[in-house]
């Protein structure tokens, strides 16, 4: 599965909060068309790194390059505009909007988002809107949410919300997705379904994924490449089987105390 060039590269990222340095020089690359996992014990700075890449936080130092563009310090919507979409640790749907509408928000640069078209030239965006509806319905169908399309998103079950997050991200036509613990708190059947969706999106649509994940079995099954963070630094990189041999990684996990999540499952 050795593939092409890096789509995302993170260099010497640093970020501290009120004197506590959460990220201290994290550095890694994500290859185009890969599913890369970002793992590490609690407090390793995984979520902070995700927030730094996605623009939710500004790094104190370091660079983030995405598809050759320096996106360091971009605002979140600008990062998304370049085709890099992230999901959140806890599913955060738009609760009082329908499932279909949740998807309809996603497409970037909609004609009907311009004030003048919205108020005075509805004909301008009608056909585009129709295409989006068709596309959204096809995506909902793929994710098994078609029957729920006119339900309020807040009425979905926890697992369905997870699927909706992914479906909503796909609707945005991203080049790359960052998933922050997409498998947290869902049952094993659904975990494997989400894993299948990821593999399908990678194969059929050429998506790249960066996934923060605790469950090492999932990582082993789905991911091509693994980046291990500890105390805000990149500790090691490689395939899962390579990392299992790495004493340093194992000890970081044992001291971090969350390797259990991987051995159960």
């Amino acid at each position: 599965m050795e593939q092409m060039k890096p789509i995302l590269s993170v260099a010497q990222l640093e970020k501290s909060f009120g004197g506590v340095q959460a990220v201290r020089g994290a550095e890694f690359e994500v290859l185009e068309g890969s599913i890369t996992a970002l793992i590490g014990p609690n407090g390793a700075g995984k979520s902070t790194v995700v927030n730094l890449i996605a623009g939710a936080l500004r790094p104190d130092a370091g660079q983030v390059h995405f598809r050759g563009v320096d996106i360091t310090g971009y605002k979140p919507h600008q990062v998304a505009g370049h085709g890099l979409i992230r999901t959140f640790q806890i599913s955060r749907e738009y609760p009082a909007m329908t499932v279909l509408e949740n998807l309809m928000v996603s497409p970037l640069g909609q004609t009907g988002e311009h004030l003048f078209s919205a108020l005075f030239r509805r004909g301008h965006y009608k056909s585009e809107e129709r295409e989006f509806v068709e596309k959204a319905i096809a995506i909902l169908d793929e994710f098994g949410l078609y029957g729920m399309r006119n339900e309020y998103a807040r009425n979905l079950s926890g697992g369905q919300k997870r699927l909706l997050e992914l479906a909503r991200a796909v609707m945005a036509d991203p080049k790359m997705l960052i998933l922050d613990e997409p498998m947290a708190g869902i049952n094993p059947a659904l975990i494997s379904r989400i894993g299948e969706h990821m593999l399908r999106l990678k194969e059929d649509n050429g998506y790249t994924f960066l996934m923060v994940e605790h469950n090492l079995d999932v990582v082993e099954r789905v991911c091509d490449h693994v980046v291990v963070l500890a105390v805000g630094r990149t500790l090691a990189q490689g395939t899962m089987s390579e990392l299992r041999q790495d004493a340093e990684v194992v000890s970081a996990y044992l001291t971090g105390g969350s390797v259990g999540a991987g051995t159960k499952g």
Partner: peptide, 12 residues
């Protein structure tokens, strides 16, 4: 509904 999510989905 959710300012952060809308922002993460490319909305200014």
């Amino acid at each position: 509904e959710d300012l952060d999510v809308a922002e993460a989905f490319g909305k200014n």
